[in-house]
Design a protein around this nucleic acid. Structure first.
Length: 942
RNA sequence: GGGGGAGUAAUUCAGUGGUGAGAAGCCUCAGCUUAUAUCUGAGUCGUCGGGAGUUCAAUCCUCCCCUCCCCUACCA
């Protein structure tokens, strides 16, 4: 009876489920890890090991996590899990960044929606703190759901009082070094957020500007000097920001460029000679006649008049003027541009900026009445009222002679997505060149290792190019700039005072600044002699740029905690952080600690759609992380991350993740097969000495040795996608599933439980399983731990999780180079010479499985391939999964000939192998002699 | 405008100056029913982004072009 016979086979037995059911089961494992205190156990295990400090970049706590967060934290987690298994002392302190404009904006809106309009700064801050706390908790849970292990109980947070205190102390260092200054300079200004912005808060987006050509009439003396008719002679400027015209104080020309005075139907115009043609086209000029040409230097000290305000606009020389676009005569508004500012300062012009905090023209007596109050802010791509107002004026007075739309990239506020304006106002800055800090920063980068290497260029460029750091923000949700002002508005700032305040902040947080008067804050603090009395002072209302918050983390965390050290071994963030956190941390490190706070800088790209374009909420491609986890489970998402080359952009789609889910299932079932076949194997009593293993098992262990070496090497280089795609996945599907396991079924299932060959293979499987699960544990922590539990304790949740295991190393006894070479050659022989004929027989319905066939291979022992076959003659039926392999020696032949036919004899109903004859057994009926012996042994042992 | 990265099977990744460009995988067919929502075999799929050049020979080298991504910028 076949059914009875099936019961005599040693089939795999395991409760390890074929399907992971990850979505439901993973959370249970997290609970188990937490209740075990897994993180603490790992730290305890590795105390005294070599240090590896990965410093976590703090995500901003203003919403749910998305795949980008998952990419970042998963990479960190995989690295740390690997390092932990390797014995490194590597504490992981997750961090959070919570100050800043986006939260404040959302909270303000919520307050307004609730009908509140009169809230105090303190109320806003409290609401912001509550908001940040809510999302800190949500994000923490979502990260942990991904399997991220860390010291979640001792996370760092930029709004913790001690953290804020360190930040202020760092700021005191800056002040002490004389780097902090206050100045009226043009800065990026976000109108919706009514605040200055830093470089890192700018993003370039396409923008449609109205570019205009405007005549500025030349002063009489200038016309005389050039011998032009004062009635219609003007200098022609070009600008893409009409609203800056009221702030025009000068026109800049290049001293060495050639300029022409041209008679046209729209008056006599001065433009750069090289641009006459393009200007004529853009302004539809006719009847051109060049009156004279001269170098720009000839215009020095000459004067034009503002096109609609009664004041002069001197002509100045500047080297940056080009003939790439425009007219070669540059509209200069020192309050609205960096270069304009410099030119203005050099020529004694006022830093004039008649725009208020909300982007509206002020009534300063100079701005035309019809413009006062108009906003320069563009909404939904429509021209601003200010632009329209200016256009109207210059169109009416005839100074506008050309107008053209121009699409170009323009700086925008990263949060509100509106165009920023350059606006000069009093702000705090950090001087980056004063003490040679920029050069020190660049030097410090030389000692940093970049992965990938091109990261160095990126941060180097950011450091080289950034102007002095504008650090003041007109916001309340942040760390206040500890500056005081007297009644005349003079600012007072002092390192000693700041440090004393920091000590108070360490206890009560920076709310202190908003709760107390200046006199109260300064109570008990010695003021510098030059300061007025404390009761004469007011607290400033600006807060520090949030990049100082997060940029101080290495000081607030690495330097303050006993179990950490400075500098970090590794920072790992998205490539946008080259100009963000990487850079701000570098500056604070170089200024305050004279060195970079990191030794290695690893960056990853961004998640994009399958077609390489950005994710968007509108088409559903920007789903929150929780949805992905709900669909696939954390391990599949993690495996997807591991399979991607993160150095570039990382594409994602359901199809892509589903492909990875296929790989996942293959790995899972391969593990299941191994666990199931080890159910009756006790390593201590059944293991066969490695030297006595059968050849096929020695081959498998050789493959394992290569795998360990290759995967370890890939992990050391943080190249998870190579580890997985190049080594782990092929090992699993080719080496194990398609080859080794397939071959082993016969011996594992049909031989008696204690048969030496069966025990030999179980010995090898046990080793492979133990090693393989550890190799994948950093990538697939849930599945590896689940399998580990079943194998170790035959339960779902072991008390000694795989994360506590040691990283596997190669045992010299696994290596059998000769067998490895021979067997791969023999398997090649199978696929090259045997599979085709087998498939033909199968198509002809002559055989089903390959065990129904036999092969006759003829050749000479002089032929190396035939000699190799001969060498492993007894292994061949197993290796080829045939019932019989006959080697037919033909001494003189030069070729190997193969004949595959249906096997002879009768089919054993138990092992399905064809044998010459069956033996009758009393209990089981006729079976092959080998099966009969196996059955007898089994019944004896029972 | 400048700089960097990338373009190889639906997809994710390998790879090499030289006979038929690989792995996984998708799809189709078949086998097994003793890993069975698993496993095995076979077939299919790519003008190796386009064009030109160097070479006996190019997917790989050179040049030009196209597309995508990132960074950067004083287009005033």
């Amino acid at each position: 009876m076949a059914l009875n016979l099936k019961e005599t086979l040693n089939l795999p037995q395991t409760e390890f489920p074929m399907r992971g059911n990850l979505v439901q089961r993973e959370p249970q494992r997290i609970e188990h890890w937490t209740s075990l205190g897994l993180y603490e156990k790992i730290q305890a295990k590795n105390t005294g090991g070599p240090d590896f400090i990965l410093h976590d970049g703090p995500p901003f706590t203003n919403g749910d996590l998305h795949l980008g967060h998952a990419l970042n934290k998963t990479l960190k987690d995989s690295i740390l899990r690997y390092k932990w298994m390797c014995g490194y002392n590597a504490p992981y302190i997750p961090g959070w960044d919570s100050h800043g404009l986006p939260i404040e904006q959302k909270v303000s809106r919520e307050l307004q929606d609730a009908g509140r309009t009169d809230y105090t700064p303190l109320e806003v801050r409290e609401a912001c703190a509550a908001f940040a706390d809510k999302f800190r908790k949500i994000q923490s849970e979502q990260f942990q759901r991904l399997g991220i292990i860390g010291d979640w109980a001792n996370e760092y947070w930029t709004i913790h009082p001690e953290y804020e205190a360190t930040e202020l102390e760092t700021f005191a260092d800056f002040v002490e070094q004389g780097l902090v200054y206050r100045s009226k300079k043009p800065v990026y200004w976000s109108i919706p957020y009514t605040t200055a912005l830093a470089e890192a808060e700018i993003e370039y987006r396409p923008h449609k500007s109205i570019s205009i050509y405007v005549k500025l009439p030349l002063a009489g003396e200038t016309c005389q000097a050039l011998n032009l008719d004062p009635a219609d002679a003007s200098i022609l400027i070009w600008t893409t920001t009409p609203w800056t015209l009221p702030a025009n104080l000068a026109v800049a020309v290049h001293p060495k460029l050639e300029y022409s005075a041209i008679k046209t139907n729209k008056g006599t115009l001065i433009v750069a000679s090289a641009l006459v043609e393009s200007v004529a086209e853009a302004c539809e000029l006719e009847g051109l006649e060049t009156l004279l040409t001269f170098p720009g230097s000839k215009l020095e000290n000459r004067e034009a008049r503002h096109p609609f305000i009664d004041r002069p606009s001197p002509i100045l020389l500047a080297d940056y003027v080009t003939t790439e676009s425009g007219t070669g005569c540059v509209h200069t508004a020192p309050g609205h541009g960096t270069e304009d500012y410099v030119t203005g300062i050099n020529n004694g012009l006022e830093v004039y900026c008649p725009i208020d905090d909300h982007g509206c023209y002020e009534d300063d007596g100079q701005v035309p009445a019809e413009l006062v109050g108009l906003s320069v802010l563009e909404t939904e791509g429509k021209p601003s009222k200010a632009n329209l107002g200016v256009l109207k004026i210059i169109a009416e007075n005839g100074s506008l002679i050309g107008k053209k739309k121009l699409e170009h990239s323009y700086p925008h506020c990263w949060r509100s997505k509106t165009p920023v304006v350059f606006r000069a106002l009093d702000q705090w800055f950090i001087a980056l060149d004063k003490n040679g800090d920029r050069q020190r920063a660049l030097d410090a980068l030389k000692s940093v290792n970049f992965i990938p290497s091109w990261g160095e260029n990126r941060i180097r460029a950011a450091v080289e190019n950034r102007p002095d750091w504008c650090i003041s923000r007109q916001r309340t949700w942040g760390v206040p700039i500890p500056a005081f002002y007297d009644q005349e508005g003079n600012a007072y700032i002092d390192a000693g005072v700041i440090r004393a305040i920091a000590r108070k902040v360490a206890v009560s947080g920076t709310d202190l600044w908003y709760r107390q008067t200046a006199a109260e804050i300064l109570q008990g603090i010695d003021l510098p002699a030059s300061w007025p009395a404390a009761d004469q002072l007011k607290c400033g209302s600006d807060t520090l740029d949030v990049w100082i918050d997060s940029g101080t983390s290495h000081r607030a965390v690495l330097q303050k905690r006993d179990n950490l050290k400075w500098p970090a071994d590794l920072y790992l963030e998205g490539s946008d952080q080259h100009r963000g956190w990487f850079q701000s941390s570098l500056w604070t490190g170089v200024i305050a600690d004279k060195a970079a706070p990191y030794k290695n800088l690893l960056t990853h790209g961004f998640i994009v759609k399958e077609d390489g374009t950005k994710l968007a909420k509108s088409d559903g491609s920007a789903r929150p992380l929780s949805e992905w986890i709900r669909s696939y489970g954390a391990d599949v998402i993690r495996l997807w991350i591991s399979s991607q080359d993160y150095r570039g952009d990382v594409p994602v789609s359901d199809k892509i993740v589903q492909n990875v889910a296929n790989n996942y299932r293959n790995i899972r079932n391969t593990l299941r097969f191994q666990i199931g076949n080890l159910h009756d194997f006790d390593r201590n009593t059944h293991a066969v000495p490695l030297a006595e293993l059968s050849a096929i098992d020695k081959w498998a262990l050789s493959q394992l040795a290569s795998l360990v070496r290759n995967v370890t090497e890939a992990y050391d280089a943080y190249e998870f996608h190579r580890a997985f795609k190049e080594y782990i996945d092929p090992f699993c599907s080719n080496t194990l599933s398609a080859t080794y396991h397939d071959i082993l079924k016969d011996r594992l299932y049909t031989r008696s439980p204690n048969d030496p060959l069966r025990r030999s293979s179980q010995t090898a499987i046990q080793i492979i399983f133990s090693v393989f699960t550890r190799l994948i544990a950093p990538l697939l922590p849930f599945t590896a731990d689940e399998a580990w539990s079943f194998a170790a304790d035959d339960c779902d949740f072991t008390e000694t999780p795989i994360a506590l295991a040691e990283w596997p190393t190669v045992d010299a006894a696994w290596q059998h180079p000769e067998i490895a070479t021979d067997f791969s050659a023999l398997r090649n022989f199978l696929s090259e010479f045997l599979n085709d004929p087998l498939e033909t027989l199968r198509q002809q319905k002559k055989i089903g499985q390959s065990l129904d066939a036999k092969a006759v291979i003829s050749g000479s022992l002089n032929h190396p391939e035939f000699a190799r076959l001969k060498k492993y003659e007894s292994d061949l039926p197993e290796l080829f999964i045939l019932s019989k392999v006959i080697l037919n020696e033909i001494p003189e032949s030069t070729e190997i000939e193969v004949e595959v036919t249906h096997a002879d004899g009768v089919r054993c109903p138990r092992s399905w192998r064809w044998v010459p004859e069956l033996i009758e057994t009393s209990e089981w009926g006729p079976v092959s002699p080998r099966c009969a012996a196996a059955l007898e042994k089994s019944s004896q042992s029972v």
